[in-house]
Amino acid sequence: MNCAEFEALLSDYREGVLMPDQAAGVRQHLIACSACAELLASVAAAQMQLASLPDLEAPRDLVARILAQTPGGLQARAPGKWNLVGWLRGTLSPRFALGFAMSVFAVAMVLNAAQINLRQVFSPQGLRQLAPATLSSTLQRHLDRAWARGVSYYHDLRVVYEIEAAIHQMRQPAPAAAPPAGAPGGGTGGAHDRSQRPTPGSGNERVAELPMFLSPLSGRYP
């Protein structure tokens, strides 16, 4: 028997419910292992201390407070009987009201997203709105529109525009004659043209520095 096996049997051993051969195994282990013998003694002491914890007196007004909150036995609910008053009282609690409001809000959001008009739903044509095919196509249309809006919003952002412009400019080879900054370049040549950067102090310093700052960005937004 090892220590883990002993630990698993410890309470059973103390309670004397082990089979004779198991109990003998435990005793043998206890002779050989002083740590487990010590643990057994500690558990015995801990149980003694637990048993010594007093039963505490409940606060004097506890029973009175409970009885005040549960007026007599009169309103205890019988099985199967629906207690309308109790139910209505429950609905007045802030938690219920908040939950109810959130549910209404959530349902309204979903109906709005699916373009379902409740006033039309109950007409014969209105029921068609609830057909799965209609619902899915409406949802698809909404998603597409939202995506398109998102994309155009993103492209319209000033910072995006400027970064794109800068990257574009950076990719353009700077002509040897150093035309005004931002002018569209010829677009031919690569490494050779790029090496002909304007010299510092030539008026195009900032343009020359730009690629240095933007190079990490160009990797992220190719």
Binding site: D55, A58, L62, V63, I66, L67, T70, G73, R77, P79
Partner: peptide, 21 residues
């Protein structure tokens, strides 16, 4: 359940200390 307030009080008195502990 039949509305006997004394019975309910008995339940509370019987168990309140144990539950409090």
């Amino acid at each position: 359940l039949a509305g006997d307030a004394a019975a309910w009080e008995e339940v509370v008195r019987l168990h309140s200390r144990r539950i409090y502990n």
